[in-house]
């Protein structure tokens, strides 16, 4: 793609892990058929799971996980001060992910339960954008490698990336699936951002909303239709809260 006189750049990239399962980083090493091309498009200078090098000179920082401790705040701010571009990668980095649940429980009690009389420092879960400015967000649990590849292409060519704005239903229908609701299963597909290729409904599992809210979700109608189909308010709310991607979006905001 050099025909316009635009030379693709080879950015220096750091991949950093914060609180989370680090599964999104592992995703970066998946999709073998294009892994070689993916790795040669970038100069990865910091990637604990993929390389022993650990440099502090990078242009782009991919952040995996969310912030739960004060030392993470310090580390994240330092990364932000070095990187020209910060990418929040995965549901945890984008909106807290499953760790968002910690914000609804008594953390001290949980700490005592797990660590007994040697409690560890831990605080409320914060998404990356709640601590520093984020330039690109790729939600997903785990993040889709295809989407990461696409973002990397945009970065090396220096063009802006726009995520899919339609809900999961579009891609689900395009896979000829029978609607999860028809099968009596709760599914957040109609209000969750697509782009994932609807793997969960295709595999028989209702959508859990790992990509967060789609643009302008009709939450009110969604709740009504789920209640009408016999799902309880508690069940629906629990599902909405699962990845934290619907926090702050209320029925009134439509």
């Amino acid at each position: 793609m050099r025909y316009l006189g635009i030379e693709p750049v080879k950015p220096r990239v750091g991949i950093f892990d914060f609180s989370g399962c680090e599964g999104c980083q592992l995703q970066l090493l998946n999709k073998e058929e294009s892994l070689g091309a993916f790795l040669s498009a970038l100069e990865i200078v910091h990637f604990r799971e993929g390389s022993s090098e650990a440099s502090d000179d990078y242009d782009i920082a991919f952040i995996d996980g969310c912030v739960t401790r004060e030392d993470e705040v310090v580390r994240l701010k330092k990364i932000r001060s070095i990187a020209k571009l910060v990418v929040a990668m995965g549901s945890c980095a984008s909106f807290g992910g499953v760790l968002r649940h910690r914000n609804y429980i008594d953390l001290d009690a949980a700490n005592r339960e797990v660590y007994g009389d040697k409690p560890k420092e831990t605080g409320k879960t914060r998404a990356i954008h709640e601590v520093v400015k984020v330039d690109v967000t790729i939600p997903g649990c785990p993040v889709s490698k295809t989407q990461v590849e696409r973002i990397v292409q945009h970065l090396v060519l220096g063009v802006p990336f726009h995520d899919v704005v339609y809900p999961v239903c579009v891609e689900c229908k395009q896979k000829f699936n029978t609607c999860m609701f028809e099968k009596g299963t709760l599914c957040l597909g109609p209000i969750t951002r697509g782009g994932c290729g609807a793997p969960c409904p295709t595999g028989g599992l209702g959508c859990w909303g790992c990509r967060g809210a789609t643009v302008d979700p009709n939450l009110k109608e969604f709740k009504d239709l789920a209640l009408k189909r016999g799902f309880s308010e508690a069940e629906i709310d629990e599902r909405l809260a699962f990845f934290g991607g619907f926090e702050g979006i209320t029925c009134a905001s439509i």
Binding site: Y3, L4, G5, I6, L157, G158, V159, P160, H162
Partner: peptide, 16 residues
């Protein structure tokens, strides 16, 4: 937008 941004970066002599 994306395409027009890229066009603005294209040098004379480029093919479109």
């Amino acid at each position: 937008g994306l395409v027009t941004d890229v066009l603005h970066r294209a040098a004379p002599g480029s093919h479109i």
